[in-house]
Simulated assay, not measured.
Amino acid sequence: MLAWLQPKPKEKHAMASVGWLRAAVLGANDGILSLSGLLIGVSSADASRRSIALTGVSGLIAGAMSMAAGEYVSVSSQADLESADLDLERQEMEQNWDEEVVELSNVYMTRGLDQELAHTVATKLMEHDALEAHAREELGINMYSVAKPVQASFSSAGAFSAGAILPLATALLSPVEHVTIILTFSTLFFLAFLGFVGAQIGGANKMRAILRVTILGVIAMAVTSLVGKFFDTEP
């Protein structure tokens, strides 16, 4: 009779993993594609194994540092904006509490609650945690997942490195005269696998994800290969 009171199994939504999934896939994809393109461009110019190795290691390190620095600056800017908005909201609540209750009530009224219920909900939530309520409903900020620049920086560099190490290892283990062709096909496999994993975790269409990353990969590698051929100075 009280079965409806029993807790139901918690649903697993793909959106719960969208943040870290996006960052991980972006970093790994960038690592695979950028380093593969770099190595294919160099090998297409008939570079020696030493040149290929030096280019690959330098590209991996430079790319990881660039990703880390870029992510740190980006997320730091986001954190600064969030902090400034929260400070302003905190100040407004100290000075105009009643107006902030009305403001939050209006948010709930636009979502379908009647005026009395909206006012009751807004009052209860602000009594519990006023800043958290306004941050979530008015500013769209989740107080429990605010921007973390250092964490984002290391995660981005790690994802890039994890992706970049695959084409680097492939290039170093391949016969130097066949690096371009082996690296091209192995990169397509790496990209397809990454697209599959990302779609699997995110619950998206797997074939669409695979086609998207592989087609873009083919275009990128074709362009860099042509650049390498253009600058080939060997007789």
Rank of each mutant, 00 (worst) to 15 (best):
V197Y: 05
D46M: 05
N29R: 04
T55Q: 09
V227S: 03
A53K: 12
G63W: 04
E94S: 12
S225V: 00
L125S: 01
W20D: 06
L173E: 04
A64M: 14
A222G: 14
I219H: 11
M93Y: 12
A16R: 08
F231D: 11
H119R: 11
V197Q: 08
L54T: 11
L60N: 00
S17E: 10
P9S: 07
A152Q: 02
S74Y: 01
K124Q: 12
E137V: 06
A28M: 10
A23L: 14
L21Q: 12
F189N: 06
A62R: 07
S161L: 06
V218A: 15
A220M: 07
M143W: 07
N142W: 01
P9Y: 02
E99P: 01
G203K: 10
G27M: 05
M221A: 04
Q200H: 14
F160C: 07
I40P: 03
K206H: 10
V218C: 15
S66N: 14
L113M: 15
M93D: 05
S43G: 05
E103Q: 09
A159K: 04
D46H: 08
E92I: 02
G198C: 10
L5M: 14
L172R: 05
D46K: 02
D80T: 03
F230S: 15
S34C: 12
S225Q: 10
A135Y: 08
A118V: 01
S74P: 05
A14R: 06
A79N: 11
I219N: 00
V227R: 01
G27E: 00
I32K: 05
N142H: 09
Y144G: 14
L191G: 00
Y72N: 02
A47E: 10
G217N: 00
G112R: 06
G59R: 02
S155I: 09
M93S: 02
Q91N: 09
E137S: 13
E92V: 01
H178R: 11
E89T: 14
A135K: 14
G31C: 11
S155C: 09
H134D: 01
V25G: 07
R208T: 14
S74L: 05
T184Q: 13
T233D: 13
L117E: 09
R212H: 07
M207N: 15
F190H: 03
E82S: 13
L168F: 13
E138D: 10
A16L: 09
L38M: 15
E82K: 11
S186Y: 01
L2M: 07
S17M: 14
A28F: 01
F193I: 11
M109H: 01
D80H: 13
A133L: 09
L226D: 08
E137M: 10
D114Y: 04
L104I: 08
D46P: 02
D80Q: 06
P175W: 03
A24C: 05
N205Y: 03
L21K: 00
K12T: 15
P7W: 06
A28L: 09
